[in-house]
Amino acid sequence: MAKAVFHKGQRVYVKPVATWAVIENVHPQWVKGVEEPLRVTYDTGLGRDFQAHELAAEDKEPQKPDLIETENWRILRAVNRLSADARDPRHPYPGTFPVVVTDEKDWGGWRVPMAEYDRDPTRVEHQSRIIANALRLMRVSRELIEFAQDNPHETPGQLLDLARQAEMVLAAIYHESAPPRVDAVVAAE
């Protein structure tokens, strides 16, 4: 018994011909006394009918590359030209301020207003290091989650708890679901 996998007018990739085509007609082969067709073939206008395993559906939504895989954030030092305190010795890097760069052209990213940097330069330097390394922490979190999922019986309890926390953090980053409140977690235990 077979059921139609594709429909008329659907764009499909025809594997034997290595090209894209539109299904012009769906041809079910019926047998008397049987409720479903024995076989379903698809006419794509390429000279012969194709079966479902020879076709592949077009992806509806193009997949965006994951930030964790494609980006590499880093700290770039910008010259602090406008500040009268540009050579202030209390600054960790006198005459400059950090810019966390998130693209290869060195323009996109995180910048801090000069007044805020002058107020507490050590704190801003620390924040820039946290932001620049956030993707690395996300990679570690993802690997921890995958390890715990692949080896649930061999993973120690504390590591499982850390994997659950990492999963909640990544869910919050990707807005998949709101992480449970702390009091709800405590009540569940």
Rank of each mutant, 00 (worst) to 15 (best):
T102A: 07
D103P: 10
D103N: 15
E104N: 14
K105P: 00
K105S: 12
D106V: 09
D106A: 14
W107A: 01
W110S: 06
W110Y: 09
W110H: 09
R111K: 08
R111G: 07
P113F: 02
P113K: 11
A115E: 10
A115I: 03
A115K: 14
E116Q: 02
E116C: 01
E116L: 08
Y117C: 08
Y117K: 00
D118C: 05
D118A: 12
R119I: 03
P121V: 06
P121W: 02
P121E: 07
P121S: 05
T122H: 15
T122K: 15
T122S: 04
T122G: 07
V124L: 14
V124G: 05
E125Q: 15
Q127N: 03
Q127P: 00
S128V: 09
S128A: 15
R129W: 06
I130S: 07
A132E: 02
N133E: 10
L135Y: 07
R136E: 14
M138W: 12
R139D: 05
R139L: 11
V140L: 12
V140E: 15
S141D: 12
S141R: 10
R142D: 10
R142E: 14
E143F: 12
I145N: 08
I145V: 15
I145A: 10
F147K: 14
A148R: 10
Q149W: 08
D150R: 15
N151G: 00
N151I: 04
H153G: 01
H153R: 06
E154I: 01
P156T: 00
G157C: 03
L159V: 14
L159G: 01
L160E: 11
L160N: 08
D161E: 10
D161C: 13
D161M: 04
L162V: 03
A163F: 06
A163T: 06
A163S: 11
A163L: 09
R164D: 09
R164F: 11
Q165L: 09
Q165I: 05
Q165K: 02
A166N: 11
A166S: 15
E167I: 00
M168W: 09
V169D: 07
L170N: 06
L170F: 11
A171I: 01
A171G: 09
A171T: 01
A171W: 07
I173M: 05
Y174F: 14
